[in-house]
């Protein structure tokens, strides 16, 4: 790792001020992605601003619209939360399947969303659930938040505070993990809300997480796994690498979508 300075802040405005004053600062949440990136010398921040002391970024609660998940809620906390398990059990189940127990103890919701790794689980879940990402200055719909590989609508000095998740009628997420890395080769989240069916895909797309609108339309007419047999998944939009061809990933998208449908509750 290159050397950097470090500060731990106690409030969101303090974190943002520190970032603005830094030559090239970086927020640090759980560090499950940032620290590996630093070790590989793929980034060279001058200062890390540790958010872990900002109490208001933690916690899991609810209001009339649904769940409010703090940006620093860890995957283990979401997985174990009695509230999440009662209100959106499929979301707790998804969180329980991220990485391994040690990663889940440190990794955070906000960190995962801000990083928008094309193989991460949370972006697909939040996109399907029509979540709203609340930052220090605005609310961003998930549809507008994820803008490409590792890209989001966040400004460089913008901080995720919490995520609002409306309660769906049905939800499930299923992924096909790479046998070695356990990252999703294809992961599909399916949600049914009062506004309709939403299907989001991670791990497979060329430009990161995306909504599979053709599947949404088919399922709006016929909410059964068989309805997806007639929906083509274009291989041209799929990622291809040493782990699998584009055609294989396209096939996996349909299989995972069917599994998510069968599991949706």
């Amino acid at each position: 790792m290159y050397a950097f300075d470090y500060c731990r802040v106690a409030a969101a405005d303090e974190a943002i001020r520190a970032l603005r004053e830094a030559e090239d600062g970086s927020f640090l949440a759980g560090g499950m992605t940032l620290i590996p990136i630093l070790k590989q010398r793929l980034a060279r921040p001058t200062v890390l601003i540790d958010l872990s002391g900002i109490v208001v970024l933690g916690g899991i609660g609810e209001d009339e619209q649904g769940l409010i998940l703090g940006a620093l809620a860890t995957h283990a906390e979401v997985a174990a939360s009695p509230l999440v398990r009662r209100v959106i059990p499929g979301l707790a189940e998804m969180a329980a399947g991220i990485g391994d127990p040690q990663v889940r103890h440190r990794g955070t919701l906000g960190g995962s969303l801000a990083n928008n790794d094309p193989v991460a689980d949370y972006p697909a879940a939040m996109l399907a659930l029509d979540a709203t990402i609340r930052t220090d200055r605005r609310a961003i719909a998930a549809d507008d938040f994820f803008t490409g590989l590792f890209e989001t609508a966040l400004a460089p000095d913008e901080l995720i505070m919490a995520v609002h998740v409306p309660v769906p009628d049905l939800f499930a997420y299923r992924k096909f993990p790479n046998p070695a890395s356990r990252y999703a080769m294809a992961g599909v989240a399916v949600a049914v809300t009062g506004k309709g069916v939403r299907v989001a895909v991670t791990g497979a797309g060329l430009s990161g997480v995306f909504r599979m609108t053709a599947m949404e339309e088919a399922l709006a007419a016929d909410f059964r796994p068989e309805a997806l047999d007639a929906v083509p998944v274009p291989a041209g939009q799929m990622n291809e690498d040493l782990h699998g061809s584009a055609a294989y990933r396209a096939h996996l998208v349909t299989v995972m979508a069917k599994r998510a449908l069968a599991a949706a509750r």
């Binding site: 560090g31 499950m32 620290i35 990663v103």
Partner: peptide
């Protein structure tokens, strides 16, 4: 592995198992 995968470095921090190769000492203050 030094890449958060193998778990040879697991310790407990405030009662939770974590990979100590993927945590800074300053974070354990």
């Amino acid at each position: 592995c030094d890449t958060s995968q193998c778990g040879a470095c697991v310790v407990h921090v405030d009662g939770l198992s974590v990979k100590s190769c993927t945590m800074l000492a300053v974070q354990a203050d």
